[in-house]
Design a protein around this nucleic acid. Structure first.
Length: 570
RNA sequence: GCGGCUGUAGCUCAGCGGAUUAGAGCAUCGGUCUACGGAACCGAGGGUCGGGGGUUCGAAUCCCUCCAGCCGCACCA
């Protein structure tokens, strides 16, 4: 089936095309009609003719019999009113389709999505939440569209801090370290290590030596490193489970994984003549990048001390994803401050021929997490909000709310509270434009009012309660008459579902789906208020039940694409 | 200094080059309250879209400039 928007746009497109090849109808939703086509104004300008006259030509040329009615409005806009019979046809098709009319892609790609990427031996905090949740929503959207997703959790498990961490592990002794790490107090471990490192020259010396041992593959050092790695992966796996994030253990492919290919990166760049020695460091100078003095800005691949920088790791990872994983698309869900770094990485990879034009490569950036004071939420010191504490707080509040309502059996309240709390947290993060800085306000997100995850979940639960009272369901021969404005408004929103999902994916903006779902939920709430369902006469009851069913499915599917559960009671 | 991002209602945010009322949510005020779940619905007040130019028939949206804030700019990842 073709979506309502696609049908209208295609038919209008033909008419526009007949007047001027390639002219865009610019079909949009409208508050004056069901849709409006704004393209006439531009077309009239190209043709050098009065807009209203051109609009009339479009009306004469268009084939919309049985689909919609056009009317010229204002200076030359086309208002589109869809016929009830066509809406009925489209709604019935959506009803019969698992995916509510969202057609899977005809050109499936293999997409590597790099996201979450916490540091080993450090606790996850709100800063990690953002990338993790956005990345996971994108992964779900890609999969839903029919693409093959390879998730890559590029954890920070290598580099100089590990000298310090391993020495601290040695100091504690394995039993002591086990005790510390097993209670998931990774921050405490890191903090103590840092403290020892800062206060003790001998410790610093040992740490430096340990880094060398680690990089040269000393077995005992690697074993100790492995302990830290294992504990950390267990910890983050636990967090992902609590967050209902789709990242799996095997998606953890950290910096250390690329260790053996770093020398190859340098060698190949050198062979291509791209490598320049600068102050002893081996660099590539991609054109167009300058530093604060206006001099060419280097991408440092190998440091003066022979060590490899993270540029080398990122280049190795990129090659692995293109050459070994055979990805057609690379997505990096990483904070906005890294924008220049990724531009340089991509530029160098293209110059080296590792990235062909056929591989789409994109840094999906997200803004900072700010406190309610609008200052950066830093990861150091006690300033950061630990994920675990945050989750617990949100769950507690949801639990209290459920207790007060007492609509759900006591033994189910905890699980439900978790689903609601998670919905609140995830939705708060996903519903704002990802590139903007994000003000993290727990009070706001767990208030469960207005444009929140729980509001959407609540809308879904209300539909579910209707079906509990109408177990017999409705006739498959339902006919949509859409006799009241709220029904028609709801129907139009339901039919826009495929575009909402596609738009969120194409722009890599999950918040677009949030906006759509909130609008849908509001329309449903109005419909629900004004249009009795169970008490309606039989044929109307069938129609309204079908609208309820479509609403529930759109909400549940939409929320699931955001990684949020849609309970049937709350 | 160069580059990037941001500046929309008291607060948090949407806004796809368009139409006499720039939209939500929260907060405030006022209604709905014999209810298929009130975590709801309906309504009101509140905005020179940071300032100034420009392009355009038309600019919150595109371009320039200024102001303010944040981020990045060589060996930490």
């Amino acid at each position: 089936m073709s979506t309502t928007y696609a049908t209208l746009s295609a038919r209008l497109g033909e008419a526009f095309d007949s007047l001027l090849p390639g002219a865009d109808p610019a079909l949009r939703s409208s508050d004056r009609a069901d849709f409006q086509a704004n393209g006439v104004m531009a077309l009239a300008k190209s043709l050098g003719r009065p807009p209203r006259e051109v609009a009339q030509d479009v009306i004469n040329a268009v084939h919309l019999d049985g689909v919609a009615e056009l009317a010229v409005a204002g200076p030359g806009f086309l208002n589109v009113t869809v016929h009830e019979e066509f809406l009925n046809h489209q709604l019935r098709a959506a009803l019969a389709d698992e995916r509510l009319g969202a057609v899977p892609t005809a050109a499936a790609k293999r997409v590597v999505i790099d996201y979450s990427s916490p540091n080993v031996a450090k606790e996850m905090h709100v800063g990690h939440l953002r990338g993790t949740i956005i990345g996971d929503a994108l992964a779900r959207l890609y999969r839903f569209a029919g693409h093959e997703v390879i998730a890559r959790n590029h954890v920070g498990d290598w580099g100089t801090p590990f000298g310090m961490l391993i020495e601290h592990l040695v100091d504690l002794g394995q039993d002591g370290a086990d005790a510390t790490l097993s209670i998931a107090d990774l921050d405490g471990f890191y903090r103590d290590a840092r403290h020892a490192f800062d206060g003790d020259e001998a410790m610093r010396e040992r740490s430096r030596a340990r880094v060398v041992a680690l990089q040269s593959g000393d077995p005992e050092t690697r074993r100790l490193w492995g302990i830290l790695f294992e504990r950390s992966v267990n910890y983050i796996s636990d967090v992902y489970a609590k967050l209902n994030v789709t990242l799996r253990r095997e998606d953890v492919v950290g910096e250390s994984y690329y260790n053996d290919s770093l020398a190859g990166v340098v060698r190949d760049l050198d062979a291509l003549g791209l490598l320049v020695d600068s102050d002893g460091a081996r660099c590539v100078f991609p054109p167009g990048f300058t530093n604060r003095l206006g001099e060419p800005l280097p991408l440092i691949v190998q440091k003066r001390d022979e060590g490899f920088g993270y540029a080398a790791t990122d280049l190795a990872a990129l090659r692995d994803r293109v050459e070994v994983l055979r990805a057609n698309e690379l997505i990096y869900v990483v904070g906005a401050p890294q924008a220049q770094h990724f531009e340089m990485i991509f530029a160098v990879a293209r110059r080296a021929g590792w990235l062909s034009d056929s591989v789409h490569c994109e840094h999906v950036a997200f803004g900072h997490v700010l406190g309610t004071d609008h200052k950066m939420l830093k990861s150091r010191q006690g300033e950061s909000v630990k994920l675990a504490a945050l989750l617990a707080e949100a769950v507690e509040r949801a639990y209290v709310a459920l207790d007060e309502r007492a609509t759900v059996a006591t033994n189910e309240r905890y699980d439900l509270a978790r689903a609601i709390a998670l919905g609140a947290i995830k939705y708060a993060d996903l519903s704002t434009e990802r590139q903007h800085d994000y003000v993290f306000d727990l009070d706001r997100m767990v208030s469960f009012e207005g444009n929140t995850g729980p509001y959407l979940q609540y809308a879904h639960a209300r539909v579910a309660s209707i079906f509990r009272r109408a177990p017999e369901g409705y006739s498959s021969e339902v006919h949509f008459t859409l006799s009241t404005p709220p029904e028609r408004a709801l129907a139009l929103a339901l039919l826009a579902w495929p575009e909402a999902v596609a738009g969120a994916l194409e722009s890599h903006q999950p918040h677009r789906l949030c906006t759509y779902l909130f609008d849908l939920a509001q329309r449903f709430a109005t419909f629900y208020d004004v249009c009795p369902v169970l008490k309606a006469p039989p044929s109307l009851r069938d129609e309204r039940l079908a609208l309820c069913d479509l609403s529930a499915r759109a909400l549940a599917q939409g929320l699931s694409l955001l990684g949020i559960d849609a309970p049937t009671q709350m």
